[in-house]
Design a binder for these strands. Structure first.
Lengths: 207, 207
DNA sequence: CGTCCGCTTGACTCAGATCAAACTTGGTGG
DNA sequence: CCACCAAGTTTGATCTGAGTCAAGCGGACG
């Protein structure tokens, strides 16, 4: 999830032209094995990168929202190594991969992308770190600590809890149960969809 | 783990000068919060990036060996967000971070780094994917499938099993037990430290 | 208005964590 | 060359937290 506003303007400054694609919920942007010819910048909606294992388990590898460059790691790949599925209706700006590769000699493009990759790597490290926390409650709290809060400490959830549970690697049932338990024990506070940590009761993760 | 031989030569081609640092097992190359001034290219030995949570749990975020650019994601950070600990005696080539940043306008440097970042992102996705496999035996087999094999399908372990268990997120006891079970049930074969999958009995992961 | 999906809670089960103890191996130093 | 130490490896017994299956509610959207 390259949430770098700089990317879009960097693309423009580098003289790259975008077309647009619109998809509705459940449609696929690309599939495993498809040749990589385009790069997608999400403008509206949210997409997930999914790998389906042989035993049918579905693995969400990445999630992208508005402003994110999607499947950025495929820029140097010939094929996609996962499926891209729309979680909602989606609008993407579409750039030609080869155009981008050609334009990389321009530092005004390559450096923002490098910076974005670097952030992405850090995010992924954070995610892996989260997975090393075994207890669901501690993992969830650690996840909350990676998210932005407003002045009063409130979190505005950007994804459904079901999505979040997949992101942090627990079942949605366990997630809801854990949320309830955290609230019962006064470690978090919920109101109107938002939620807030109380008395810094958290195992902190990176960030 | 940027296992790109290209990196070192790209650094040289870009006119970057390296000094050298030697450390022995257990020493730290840098710690959480240290300012990022240098970049390290591992020449010999192996290093781990570790985050220590407040509850004392140690999390191995990354592991690097010869040829890897270490903590590459910190290139655009001011501070390190983890500790770097030598798993063995280590020799690193040391480059100045600012020199690298200045040289990024040179596409002969920026493109190899971009490519390496991109691979790194894919590796991390693979790791996260692994973590989504719940059963220890399937996770271990999936891990094996991400590793290179020789002509006859043998794996030459590069890390101790204890390290591997940490990498894939199970305890070392569970790891040894699972290995034993896999061998008993004939799904893997072990001999002289090496091991090999039998009859493709595996849940495949990315790669 | 009906269907889909996210949300929520309960009961049960089991895989893997934890604690514990012993053995092997490799390296260090006297 | 051997004693010793540290770390990895191996196996057992026990326990618990999260997965699984199941079922019901309510809001959103077409």
């Amino acid at each position: 999830m390259l949430s770098i506003f700089g990317i879009q303007s960097a693309f423009e400054n580098a003289g790259l032209k975008a077309s647009e694609v619109k998809l509705s919920r459940g449609e696929t942007l690309f599939r495993w094995g498809d040749p990589v010819r385009k790069m997608y910048l999400v403008e509206r909606g949210s997409l997930v990168m999914v790998r389906t294992l042989e035993n049918g388990q579905e693995l969400v590898v990445q999630r992208a929202g508005p402003g994110d460059l999607f499947a950025e790691a495929s820029l140097f790949s010939d094929q996609y190594y996962c499926d891209a599925i729309c979680g909602t209706a989606v609008v993407c700006a579409v750039y030609d991969k080869q155009d981008i590769l050609n334009a990389l000699t321009n530092p005004d493009l390559s450096i923002p992308i490098l910076r974005a990759y670097s952030l992405q790597i850090r995010d992924l490290h954070t995610q892996i770190e989260l997975r090393n926390i075994r207890r669901a409650d501690e993992r969830l709290l650690a996840y909350f600590n990676t998210l932005p809060v407003d002045d009063e400490g409130w979190h505005e959830p950007e994804h459904s809890w079901k999505d979040i549970s997949r992101t942090i690697g627990i079942t949605h049932e366990a997630c809801y149960r854990t949320l309830a338990a955290l609230e019962r024990s006064g470690r978090i506070e919920r109101s109107g969809g938002r939620y807030r940590l109380r008395n810094q009761a958290a195992v902190k993760a990176t960030r």
